[in-house]
Amino acid sequence: MHESLLIYRNMRYLKWSLALVAIACGLYIFHTPIEEPNGGTWLGYTLGTIAAGIMFWLSWYGARKRSYGGATGRLEDWASAHVYLGLALVFISTLHSGFQYGLNIHTLLYVLMMIVVISGVFGLYFYMRFPRLLAENRRGLTTDMMLNQIADLDRDLRKHALSLGDESAHIVLNAVQNTRIGGNISRQLSGKDVDCPTSAARRFVEQFEGGHDESTRRQLVTRLTKKEDLLGRVRKDIKLRCLLQIWLFVHVPFTFATLAALIAHVIVVFYYW
């Protein structure tokens, strides 16, 4: 019923990709070109054509993902095949290159492609691991529900702050007003805030001594601790969701760069035939 894309359809696409890689490796081993192995032999052209075909097909995933309704079949088929064929591409294109690298457009293409594949592997790892972490962190709540709970706590804190002395009130109100969630990429990815005003307020209130109403202190500590816990969870939630997307900022632009380099590679090869 629920099947991860790695084991989808009894790993049909893994099997196909393995077969493709095995055939390519077999041919490469038994192929004895006149000169050294090279993209220009019949095998080189064959592997190159296959690799280029796979690259275009893999890039088409972005369009397929967004063609709802009209398309037939399940997107998971595409995703599963995308993963395994993408990994197979590493082998095919390496064999196509005949292990010849240099400072040229051809190696640039290879490097760009490897960046895309490696970022994809990261993405795959994130996709396999983070959903469970996200669910565990949320414990049945949604992000909005957590934010609402924080807002409720803030309202209470504000009310309690009214009965405090100036300094304490300032620190508690600071926790209400200046606690930040999210922000720029690095803040999102860090998943925490070392200077979190809420934590500071909690520490401060915990050390209240004399002159304060004990029950108010307890109430404040309870709420601030609760808020701290929620903040921790929301920040972790944001971090994980950020990671689930951020690899795409490498994967997608480099895909287009790879396609451009691929076209250049093909033109150059035929121009200097």
Partner: peptide
């Protein structure tokens, strides 16, 4: 359930990771 479409509900068909299933 997207009964007009061949192939069934589009929510399930559009899920890339197999997380959505109609049971």
């Amino acid at each position: 359930m997207c009964k007009e479409l061949v192939g069934g509900a589009s929510c399930v068909r559009a899920c890339p990771t197999g997380a959505a299933a109609r049971v």
